[in-house]
């Protein structure tokens, strides 16, 4: 199924099921997804390791965001999606979230008419502990600005609200879509630090254009091209392979720390 790129060691981590201790928390096989009758994901296989960050890479428009949305059940999809071995591919979105899938969407999607505190309270899930201590430790600003309408926050602050909503609950996996998009370099560092902490709490599937952030955080990568997953492997091996990064991402991962951002 998976056509591996010609790099030396890219195929060492395959898509097949692995031994128990490292069984993936999220397993996606032969995923297809469509929006308004348009096929946006053709065939994606991926797995999220039980710890750390797995990065989902690819050029613009190859179906990264659609893959995340399909896993969340926000767009029409078919194929296998298993969370800790349980099939979630036919569940409605709210049940998927209820099973412990935290979602940080591409454009933050904070509720702009609600206050910061209300945004967080809305995210409180029944049957889960609510880690306000962690959230406010990571983003002290959110505590100070609790009564402010989220729509009046800066882009970086909105991203913090969005991340905080996902970190608040006890999740089994976090799906985080382009958290550093459009942020100033200083904020990128701040968000990256928060992501590193997030990955200690729950495994993360991260869509990220900034390859330096990927290099710092991710252990595994999955690369998409035209709605298909075409490469699975170790993150640093892939990023150190100028041929592969040039071919699949259009950048020299090894030499350009700013990546495609």
């Amino acid at each position: 199924m998976t056509s591996s790129p010609p790099s030396r060691d890219a195929a060492t981590v395959g898509a097949g099921p692995t031994a128990r201790p490292t069984a993936p928390v999220l397993l996606v096989r032969d995923l297809q997804a469509h929006v308004a009758g348009q096929q946006v994901v053709e065939h994606v296989d991926l797995q999220v390791a039980p710890t750390g960050v797995t990065a989902l890479l690819g050029r613009n428009g190859v179906g990264k965001t659609s893959t995340i949305k399909a896993v969340m059940g926000l767009i029409g999809r078919s194929g296998t999606i298993e969370l800790d071995g349980e099939d979630i591919s036919t569940l409605p979105t709210f049940r998927i979230a209820g099973r412990g899938v935290g979602y940080v969407p591409e454009d933050r999607e904070v509720f702009s008419g609600l206050t910061v505190t209300e945004n967080l309270r809305l995210a409180e899930r029944r049957g889960s502990e609510h880690r306000y201590d962690l959230v406010y430790e990571l983003f002290p600003e959110l505590e100070q600005r609790g009564a402010q309408a989220a729509g009046t926050l800066s882009g970086g602050q909105q991203q913090m609200v969005s991340l905080a909503r996902a970190l608040l609950n006890d999740n089994r996996v976090l799906l985080i879509d382009e958290p550093t998009k459009g942020l100033a370099p200083r904020l990128v560092t701040e968000v990256a630090e928060a992501l590193a902490r997030a990955a200690e709490v729950a495994p993360v599937l991260l869509v990220e254009q900034n390859l330096q952030v990927v290099r710092d955080l991710a252990r595994h990568v999955v690369v998409l091209t035209d709605g298909r997953s075409v490469h699975h492997g170790d993150a640093s091996d892939f990023l150190d392979d100028p041929v592969a990064t040039q071919r699949l991402l259009g950048v020299h991962g090894g030499t350009d720390p700013a990546g495609a951002a």
Binding site: H34, A36, G37, G76, R77, S78
Partner: peptide, 10 residues
């Protein structure tokens, strides 16, 4: 028929 294909939107 749409009824047999609830997810399709085309």
């Amino acid at each position: 028929p749409a009824a047999e294909e609830p997810e399709a939107d085309d």
